[in-house]
């Protein structure tokens, strides 16, 4: 009986000095209340055509140029579509780390657009946990094309978009996003068309090396316009990151790099070979005072 206690006491005595520094570390872990936010789920504010949960940080201004060329299957005479260029210029800005706004102008339908994006949940581990990041997104788009001999009311030129972005970075290489959303058109081509078009989008990013990644995107529409033939938008891309730049080279079937356009006005069928080359180039600038520590 006594022997047992002695052995126990001796063991106890030895156990302390052996891993004294690890004990100190354990003591630190006990008092650890830090939260680890998942970063770099997506590198661009767009995955291909649509928005990602990436936001620009406070006082960061992004100049974004999105190019969409003609159809590759137009052949050599059109230089595989490169003769026809559609462009969207945009300025996008971080009001805070979780609230971004932006305005843009696209050649497609001479459209002016604007958006607000609010990230209300961040993926995190540690003392606080969340498996996903979430953002609310809303945009409007105004078609400013002249219509010869017609008088179109201003309101009828407008379409609105509402989306919930749900993204998760599964590991350091793979990120996935779901985008339930809805486009509301103030006017539709025919009375049988729905004014509200609902869709579910999916996007992903797979990192190949530290600076290269593959991207993919698809939006399924539940109730597309019926009076004109339109298709679900699909895209495959390749992303290169260099310092303050993100280059996205992509293949898609739409000309319109904004929601109302690519959801309701995509007239090309990707799987019939009506594929367009395009790219998004983004340059960010840190404005204002440097951040205070």
């Amino acid at each position: 009986m006594k022997n047992k206690y002695v052995v126990f006491a001796v063991l106890l005595f030895f156990s302390f000095p052996v891993c004294a520094q690890d004990d100190l570390l354990d003591l630190l872990d006990e008092t650890d209340e830090s939260v680890n936010y998942t970063i770099a789920t997506f590198k661009g504010t767009r995955i291909i055509n649509g928005h990602s949960t990436k936001l620009r940080k406070k006082k960061v201004l992004e100049f974004l140029i999105s190019h969409r060329f003609g159809r590759i299957n137009n052949g050599i005479y059109e230089f595989f579509g490169l003769d026809e260029a559609n462009i969207r210029f945009a300025l996008e800005y971080g009001i805070t780390d979780v609230l971004n706004i932006g305005v843009g102008r696209s050649s497609f339908d001479k459209t002016y657009d604007g958006f607000v994006k609010w990230k209300f949940l961040r993926q995190k581990t540690g003392a606080q946990r969340s498996p996903v990041s979430m953002a609310l997104f809303s945009s409007y788009a105004i078609n400013s094309m002249r219509a010869e001999g017609q008088n179109i009311n201003f309101e009828d030129r407008i379409g609105y978009t509402f989306e919930l972005l749900i993204a998760r970075k599964f590991n350091s290489d793979f990120s996935f996003q779901l985008i339930p959303g809805m486009v509301h058109l103030n006017s539709v081509p025919s009375a049988q068309d729905d004014n509200d078009i609902y869709y579910l989008g999916g996007g992903l990013r797979y990192k190949l090396t530290r600076s290269f990644a593959l991207t993919m995107e698809y939006y399924y529409r539940f109730n597309p316009l019926t009076s004109t033939e339109t298709f679900d938008v699909i895209g495959f891309g390749f992303e290169i990151e260099t310092g303050g730049h993100v280059f996205q080279l992509l293949f898609t079937n739409t000309l319109a790099p904004f929601e109302k356009g690519f959801i309701t006005e995509t007239v090309d069928e990707f799987w019939d070979g009506d594929i367009r080359f395009g790219f998004n180039i983004s340059r960010t600038f840190q404005l204002g005072q440097k951040r205070k520590w």
Partner: peptide, 21 residues
Amino acid sequence: DIVFSIPVNQFQFAKSLMQEH
């Protein structure tokens, strides 16, 4: 005996993009 534990993602940079990189 001394130990230090430094959370790497808590380094604050003047430029947010630099911090991400």
